[in-house]
Nucleic acid binder design. Sequence first.
DNA 1: TCGTGTCAAGAGCACCGCTCACAAACAGGG
DNA 2: CCCTGTTTGTGAGCGGTGCTCTTGACACGA
Lengths: 233, 233
Amino acid sequence: MTQTPAAPRTARERARAELTREIVASARRHLEAEGAAGLSLRAVARDLGLVSSAVYRYFPSRDELLTRLIIEAYDGLGDAVDAAEGVVARQDLLGRWMAVANGARDWALEHPQEWALIYGSPVPGYAAPQATIAPGTRVAVTLITILADGVAEGIEPVTVPVPSAVTAGMMRLRELVPAIVTDSHLIAGLMARTQLLGHISLELDGQYNNSIDDLDSFFDHVMRRTADTLGLG
Amino acid sequence: MTQTPAAPRTARERARAELTREIVASARRHLEAEGAAGLSLRAVARDLGLVSSAVYRYFPSRDELLTRLIIEAYDGLGDAVDAAEGVVARQDLLGRWMAVANGARDWALEHPQEWALIYGSPVPGYAAPQATIAPGTRVAVTLITILADGVAEGIEPVTVPVPSAVTAGMMRLRELVPAIVTDSHLIAGLMARTQLLGHISLELDGQYNNSIDDLDSFFDHVMRRTADTLGLG
DNA sequence: TCGTGTCAAGAGCACCGCTCACAAACAGGG
DNA sequence: CCCTGTTTGTGAGCGGTGCTCTTGACACGA
């Protein structure tokens, strides 16, 4: 993903890279155990046998460390989704969509705190820096690719007229997407993504706790219905 | 909502109720200004000219204060949604749905921190207490009511076969919903709710920041398409 | 009027993010 | 090889946090 700066030459650089990795690893352990707000630089320092101020040689602030974890979380999710989608035959569009959906949900259930970090409420007074927006779009990109492949093959997502105000507001998005994918298709894809991410967040929040028992089959069913609206299958 | 315990008789009780209200009010101001993690009991105490420990006479912990704010947020959202939906003619089902959608979004945009508190990632090590689950279902209840009214009037939401595993897992939910609303209808309603809540959360998270400009008309369009799947309008 | 129970106060504990002056360890050039 | 400049870890310290506990003042009811 991010270009690793060649090979560390000197022992110092080597040690620095190593310690940086260890700090991030410890931070992720704390994140998974206690959540974002429970992540403390001092605890990480203790883990590594350092004094707290030493960590500031590697990350200028707790927020920088959080940013690193956010980027890694986006990439972890993106990798998991792409891996799941990659093993499905290219022409099996429904299979690819379901692989994306299940891949995302499985990753979320395994890494709830990381999910909360990227799709949950923003950490107080933390503004997502530029570096996080590119990895943040990976799932959407994968999804739109499936949709574009499908349209090229002749599937027909439900199509409705799109008001001109909406079309006008989507210009920046249009340029990133193949022309065969119409605005109506594109919106259907965004809605499918909302359905996917929304469901996972609600499930992690426990919003189905006292109403739905078999969340696996419920999710499967909901995602298949969503696929229908995309004309897949 | 919550039964206020009659009238405070003695001056002591009166003062206690008054101070409790002031604490909550100050806490909500801090929540709106700095977010959930920026909410500190000591700051609230300073606001009210109290010493920090005095606040513990009224709320046994910061979490209890947060719980109070969560309940009030759910009720604030519920009130806003119900108020918006209440002024629309009963038989105008699409109008009622759009009122709910816009009511929820408007409230969220006005109270982003409160929204994050109830639909964002759970605060670290904070487990939603029993008292929060009832007010947490108000939007869903309003939605299902519209759907039930519609089905009674003869609308026909898109209907698909529901696998038996899904049906079996929904028994607890079934008992709360009129029988005319089939499982397929009910799931369509839940999916509409997911679309609504998911969209709002993504918008607040800034996930549309560099792609969609006119979020008002985009939201309107998406919600109308969602209404289509419910057979409204 | 007097006893009881409630109250705010304040000191204190352990934690947090972060800064800074200092000394040790290191890398590279003369 | 040694000298110089940079990098690194240390430890003290500042102001903040949630929370506990003791203490003394006060108001209420009998």
